[in-house]
């Protein structure tokens, strides 16, 4: 697969961020055992972080060298990277993760499924509720009863 000739919105910033993360990773890897020996636990982490730094530099150089069609506005960058639907979905994802310890796995999954299907499908509340009920029952039967997975229980709703 060849890279697209044009720069993607926000690509240079992303490349810079990756380089920053790589440098931080190298510093953290150095912190494991420094250069105290050739067989210490920090050697491979340092080498891996080193590869990240070098390849991060190459990625940044490539991103800087590629032509940019027109300077994308912040709005365009956001639309490319985080379209509204995705933002809502990821927000639901975060809320879902946060709700599991309190509500328990099945109720939290039910709420997550209902809200996301309702938001994405646009067929109305009844359809979303029906599909959710069916899915949660399916998950319970397949995973709890057949695979015997102990699903996380909640504090509010055990």
């Amino acid at each position: 697969m060849k890279p697209p000739s044009d720069l993607r919105p926000g690509e240079r910033v992303f490349a810079l961020a990756l380089l920053g993360v790589s440098l931080l990773a190298f510093q953290q890897a150095y912190g494991i055992s420094g250069f105290s020996g050739l067989t210490t636990g920090g050697v491979i982490p340092m080498l891996a972080a080193g590869v990240m730094v070098v390849s991060g530099l190459v990625i940044l150089r490539d991103a800087l060298a590629r032509p940019r069609p027109a300077r994308p506005s912040l709005r365009e960058t956001l639309r490319f990277l985080v379209p509204p639907q995705l933002v809502l979905f990821v927000a639901l994802l975060v809320a879902y993760g946060a709700a599991i310890p309190g509500l328990g796995f099945l109720p939290a999954s039910g709420v997550f499924l209902f809200l996301s299907i309702w938001m994405l499908w646009r067929r109305g509340v009844l359809w979303a509720a029906g599909i959710t009920a069916l899915s949660v029952t399916g998950v319970y039967v397949v995973f709890r009863l057949v695979f015997q997975v102990v699903l996380p229980s909640g504090t509010v709703w055990p």
């Binding site: 996301s116 299907i117 995973f143 699903l151």
Partner: peptide, 26 residues
């Protein structure tokens, strides 16, 4: 797909949890 993707997320969450029964893995 509007049904499929939320379901994939839920299945992924169950899958990640089931390995060591550790909610942090979700």
């Amino acid at each position: 797909r509007a049904i499929l993707f939320p379901l994939i997320v839920v299945l992924s969450a169950v899958g990640a949890y089931a390995i060591q029964n550790n909610p942090v893995h979700i």
